[in-house]
């Protein structure tokens, strides 16, 4: 394309052609989803093994690894992803804001749990399980609807099902025993993040 004078009809053609070119849909990549999925599953498995073998609840502090690793890696990976695709659409902006809200909620919820633990001597860390399986799952479901990606909708729905079971157990005072809850938690994250992440990466590679 050069810098030259154009007719009115050519103007219209340029506008419609450029609109069509920006409509090409990018599914993005699933690397951030995969990172969170694998880190969460690895940390959950580690906590599960340590709790099972030692019966010492102090191992639950390992959950913080999840937030530390994910919190550091996510902005770096997001910047690389933006540079790779070169464009940010309105739906990208919406989903980015949804996940930012989830991140802020995670920080606030963690601070609340810490305050309850050290100020009121009350253990309310199950809030974080509800957060992981309800808030995160709902955000993924919303992202899937916005970007029209079925694997994210399905993944979000799987997580949400596990989340509803968790909420019902907490409300009904059913103990979240590690022998069934941890496998469910891990399975939920495999279905919620690892499988959709691989599906999105596969689609992204097919597009190129």
């Amino acid at each position: 394309m050069e810098e030259k004078r154009i007719t009115e009809r050519e103007s219209l053609e340029i506008i419609t052609s450029m609109i069509a070119r920006t409509k090409e849909r990018y599914v993005g990549d699933g690397n951030i989803l995969l990172m969170w999925g694998y880190v969460t599953v690895a940390v959950a498995a580690l906590v599960w093994v340590m709790l099972f073998t030692t019966r010492n609840p102090a191992w639950n502090w390992l959950w913080f690894l999840n937030g530390i690793i994910g919190g550091i890696a996510t902005p770096i990976m997001a910047r690389r992803q933006e540079a790779r695709f070169g464009v940010k659409s309105y739906s990208d902006k919406v989903t980015s804001h949804i996940w930012s809200a989830v991140g802020v909620t995670a920080v606030v919820a963690t601070l609340c749990c810490l305050a309850f633990q050290f100020v009121l001597h009350a253990c309310c860390w199950r809030t974080m399980l509800v957060f992981a399986l309800v808030v995160v799952a709902f955000a993924e479901l919303a992202q899937g609807i916005v970007v029209k990606e079925a694997s994210l909708v399905a993944g979000g729905a799987i997580g949400l099902c596990a989340g509803i079971i968790t909420v019902c157990c907490i409300a009904g005072e059913v103990p979240l025993a590690i022998n069934w809850f941890m496998p469910m938690f891990i399975a939920a994250f495999v279905g919620m993040m690892i499988i959709p992440g691989h599906i999105i990466n596969h689609k992204s590679k097919s597009q190129q």
Partner: peptide, 15 residues
């Protein structure tokens, strides 16, 4: 102009 209009058309459609 051809190129400036093209750039503006794209930027009207993306963030």
């Amino acid at each position: 102009s051809q190129l400036r209009l093209a750039v503006m058309s794209i930027l009207m459609n993306v963030e």
